[in-house]
Amino acid sequence: LRTVEMKKGPTDSLGISIAGGVGSPLGDVPIFIAMMHPTGVAAQTQKLRVGDRIVTICGTSTEGMTHTQAVNLLKNASGSIEMQV
């Protein structure tokens, strides 16, 4: 596991798309980074990659989380965001 910290302002975009989660079209698979926009906050860290499994978001485990719950957690996060992948 590695921990990645990002700074995100209220109008900034992380610039990632995620897939997976409980009840997702892919089945109940762990949440992972499906796409990254090169100008997004996540890409700027140069520490995240497409395919990385997201284990925690700001200390909250993604295990058993639906896709929608994970998306909302990421969208609503601002300031210092910590992810374990």
Results as ranks from 00 to 15, higher is better:
Gln69Arg: 09
Val41Gly: 03
Arg2Tyr: 11
Thr3Ser: 09
Pro10Cys: 09
Met65Gly: 03
Met35Tyr: 15
Glu63Ser: 11
Ile81Trp: 02
Thr66Pro: 05
Ile16Val: 07
Leu26Glu: 14
Met35Arg: 15
Thr66Val: 02
Lys47Arg: 11
Gly64Lys: 10
Pro25Arg: 08
Gln84Gly: 09
Leu73Gly: 02
Phe32Met: 09
Gln69Thr: 13
Ser80Trp: 11
Arg49Glu: 12
Glu63Met: 09
Lys47Asp: 12
Pro38Val: 01
Asp52Tyr: 04
Val41His: 06
Thr11Trp: 12
Leu74Tyr: 08
Asp28Met: 05
Gly79Ile: 01
Gly64Asn: 13
Ala43Trp: 09
Leu73Arg: 07
Ser24His: 06
Val85Trp: 00
Asn72Cys: 10
Val55Asp: 07
Met6Cys: 06
Gly51Val: 01
Thr68Arg: 13
Pro38Ile: 00
Leu48Asn: 01
Gly79Thr: 09
His37Asp: 15
Val41Phe: 06
Thr3Leu: 10
Pro25Gly: 08
Thr66Glu: 07
Ile31Phe: 01
Gly27Met: 02
Pro30Asp: 07
Ala77Ser: 12
Gln44His: 08
Gly40Glu: 03
Leu1Tyr: 13
Gly9Ile: 04
His37Gln: 13
Gly21Gln: 02
Ile16Glu: 02
Arg53Val: 13
Leu74Phe: 09
Leu73His: 08
Gly23Asp: 11
Ile31Glu: 04
Gly15Arg: 02
Thr60Trp: 09
Gly21Glu: 00
Ile57Pro: 05
Leu74Met: 08
Val85Met: 00
Glu63Asn: 09
Ile33Val: 09
Ile18Thr: 03
Gly15Met: 01
Glu63Pro: 00
Gln69His: 11
Gly27Asp: 05
Val55Ala: 12
Gln69Asn: 09
Gly23Lys: 02
Ile54Phe: 00
Pro25Ile: 10
Ile54Gln: 05
Leu74Asn: 07
Asp12Lys: 09
Gly64Arg: 09
Gly20Val: 00
Leu26Phe: 11
Thr68Glu: 14
Asp28Gly: 03
Gln84Val: 12
Ile18Trp: 04
Ile18Arg: 02
Gly23Asn: 09
Gly27Tyr: 00
Ile16Gln: 02
Gly64Leu: 05
Met35Trp: 15
Val29Tyr: 08
Gly23Arg: 05
Thr68Gly: 13
Asp52Ser: 03
His67Asn: 14
Leu14Arg: 03
Leu1Gln: 01
Ile33Pro: 05
Ile33Phe: 00
Asp52Gly: 03
His37Cys: 11
Gln44Ala: 13
Gly23Thr: 04
Asp28Asn: 11
Lys47Ser: 11
Thr11Val: 09
Leu48Thr: 01
Val85Gln: 00
Ser80Asn: 14
Leu73Tyr: 05
Met36Tyr: 00
Gly21Trp: 03
Leu74Glu: 00
Arg2Pro: 01
Lys75Ala: 13
Arg49Cys: 12
Val55Gly: 01
Val50Lys: 07
Met6Arg: 01
Ile54Trp: 01
Val71Trp: 13
Asn76Ile: 08
Thr39Gly: 15
Ala34Ile: 04
Ile81Gly: 03
Val50Trp: 02
Lys75Thr: 13
Pro25Leu: 09
Leu73Phe: 12
Val50Asn: 07
Ile18Lys: 04
Thr11Gly: 15
Leu26Arg: 07
Thr56Glu: 09
Glu63Lys: 12
Ile57Glu: 07
Lys8Met: 15
Asp28Lys: 06
Ile31Lys: 04
Ser17Gly: 13
Glu5Ala: 11
Leu14Glu: 02
Leu74Arg: 02
Arg2Asn: 06
Thr56Ala: 12
Ser13Thr: 15
Glu82Ser: 14
Pro38Phe: 05
